[in-house]
Design a protein around this nucleic acid. Structure first.
Lengths: 205, 205
DNA sequence: CGTTAACTGAACAGACCTGTACAGTTTAGC
DNA sequence: GCTAAACTGTACAGGTCTGTTCAGTTAACG
């Protein structure tokens, strides 16, 4: 009945304000951190009334949560694009490293500052539920690597598990160092180290 | 003339307030982040007048800087203690991993949340000078590892360099994941991976 | 055209932020 | 005891913070 009306109205009308808020929040939250970025700054830069923000998000914490979810989805989209170019499981693992490099490259113009998800977790207290979102994101990354390694090393599951953790440590460590230095060269080094590990694992069964 | 007087007064009298401020700031900054922790919270918990804070530190930013310097010195002290137990260069490298585990263990009761230095860097904007303090700290850690590896692999300097970077990525990556999970088991895994790498490098020259 | 939902701008509440000012108290060394 | 330094408590200035309220506007729909 009013399904198409409400649905169309929501799709055609609610989007602009919500979308502009998410785009602006993404830029500011990443560049300056979530605690240091005020609501007033976001609505002014987005050109949106404060009432519209609180019509779309019940609180700043929910906006932060939406930001984290968007970053996770964005990461997955970049990863899937990289995965399409991958020939086999070895290249699929390296696609994860390339995805991290893509993230660094995308943030370069505004000032690369490391992983946006991890940075948010770093400024939230220990029990905050938003930290769990970040924890699960990193677990997803490791699980994706593991999936490819199980194809690469079908007869050696526990070696695949250890290698997946090893590679995910390399990824996160290189990302942290790269963020401090403001460029992605550390991620390129990590990719080189990863290829050596993959070759070593494939060579000597 | 007034050197002994002023010196003694500074040692006997200025310390208490400054020290209590640093101890309290360390606890709060680590647990809740520097931006989310207000000056009033710190002075109340330290039992110190606001005037005393601004007599010892010219601004909150300087207190944050003192916090970072203290964490760096604390790390070095823990590392030196671990290094004394190390038999050779191989064990010296592992002493760095043990130092990270010590940090995680020390923060366990209040709520382990990853590397305190890296967490501060994560909530500061790109150009902030405090980020350089953290960057240099991490470069120091890698340089210490490199020094031990140059002893372990005296004839292969470029392999030592690549391995030092590899091990430092492992350290930081495991620390980040451990912080998200709230316990140090990931650091133990990283240490195991490090021993395998060290054995591999020593075995096949 | 009239309904409905999204949106706007502005004012407001109440709290918290950093940093300063000031008058007075405690403590150490002479 | 006297001086000088560190320290205390309180009040204040001038912002900024999140979140709410409200009256009025815009735009898409049947």
């Amino acid at each position: 009945m009013n399904e198409s009306k409400t649905g169309a109205a929501a799709a055609g009308r609610r989007r602009p304000a919500r979308e502009r808020l998410l785009v602006t929040a993404a830029r500011r939250f990443y560049a300056e951190g979530v605690t240091a970025t005020g609501i007033d700054t976001i609505i002014a830069e987005a050109g949106v009334a404060k009432t519209s923000l609180y019509n779309n998000f019940s609180s700043k914490a929910e906006l932060v949560r939406a930001y984290l979810d968007a970053r996770h989805e964005e990461w997955l989209a970049t990863y899937r694009a990289r995965l399409e170019e991958a020939a086999g499981p070895r290249e699929a693992v390296l696609a994860v490293f390339d995805t991290y490099a893509d993230c660094a490259e995308a943030a370069r113009e505004t000032g690369f500052r490391g992983c946006g998800l991890l940075n948010v977790a770093a400024e939230l207290p220990a029990g905050d539920t938003a930290r769990d979102v970040v924890r699960r994101h990193k677990e997803t990354v490791e699980a994706l690597i593991l999936g490819h390694l199980e194809q690469l090393l079908p007869e050696r599951p526990e070696e695949a598990g250890a290698l997946a953790e090893h590679l995910s440590f390399l990824l996160e460590g290189a990302m942290a160092r790269a963020g401090l230095e403001g460029d992605g060269s550390r991620l390129a080094h990590a990719r080189t180290l990863a290829t050596a590990l993959l070759d070593g694992a494939a060579d000597k069964p």
